[in-house]
């Protein structure tokens, strides 16, 4: 199916390619809030990963199965108790962090279940968003497509916020990629980057 072709998927979701770059061939992966399974499918096609997605939405369950990926229907917020410690090489949270309610315990659970965690999220410090707020409105963009009254995003943060959180919660950041569209942002990332992707592990 052409809609799922790896090249097209990577173009539509630049964070997919960034995540894939960090994942070695044949790794085991748990994708939390896996949506329609596109990322897992992409990683299966490009990295031969094996693993599972966790997803709550009925329509997405069907989509995941259609995408040929394992999916477990459940609520991330009620914990990952079904998963054993250190069961996965990577636990992913792609564009989901900002929509989680109990973000701190979830981050800890990610690092209990996986050797490494990877998160991607929209940077709330991106200049367009700041400009929106400065002009008097909550930002609405491609990365933040929701109106303030119907958004699932309850824990939006900036790059700095996330990095401070990690420092205070024994999370050791291994790598960071900041992007706007398909372009990697190295200069003033908290201002110029719209999407951030982090790879991290438990701080020793």
């Amino acid at each position: 199916m052409s809609a799922h072709h790896p090249v097209e998927l990577a173009a539509a979701r630049p964070d997919f390619a960034a995540i894939a770059e960090w994942i070695p061939q044949g790794a085991s992966v748990l994708d939390l809030g896996c949506g329609d399974g596109s990322l897992l499918r992409y990683l299966k096609d490009t990295r031969k990963v094996r693993g599972y997605g966790v997803e709550i939405d009925d329509i997405n369950i069907v989509a995941c199965i259609q995408n040929g990926v394992n999916v477990i229907q459940g609520d991330l917020e009620s914990g990952l108790s079904g998963f054993e410690s250190d069961a996965f090489d990577f636990v992913l949270l792609s564009q989901t962090l900002q929509a989680t309610r109990h973000t701190e315990p979830l981050m800890q659970e990610m690092l209990r279940v996986g050797h490494e965690g990877i998160v991607s999220f929209p940077n709330f410090g991106y200049w367009r968003g700041r400009l929106n707020v400065l002009l008097g409105n909550m930002p609405v963009s491609k990365d933040l497509p929701y109106q303030w009254y119907d958004t699932p995003n309850v824990h939006l943060c900036t790059l700095y916020d996330f990095e401070t959180f990690c420092a205070e919660h024994h999370v050791h950041i291994l790598e960071r990629r900041v992007m706007t569209g398909n372009n990697e942002i190295r200069l003033l990332p908290n201002l110029l980057g719209s999407t951030a992707v982090y790879r991290f592990q438990r701080a020793t």
Binding site: S28, Y52, I61, N70, I72, E84
Partner: peptide, 12 residues
Amino acid sequence: LLHNHLNVSYGE
């Protein structure tokens, strides 16, 4: 099934 790394999908 998960603990045995078997392919499984679960729907509620």
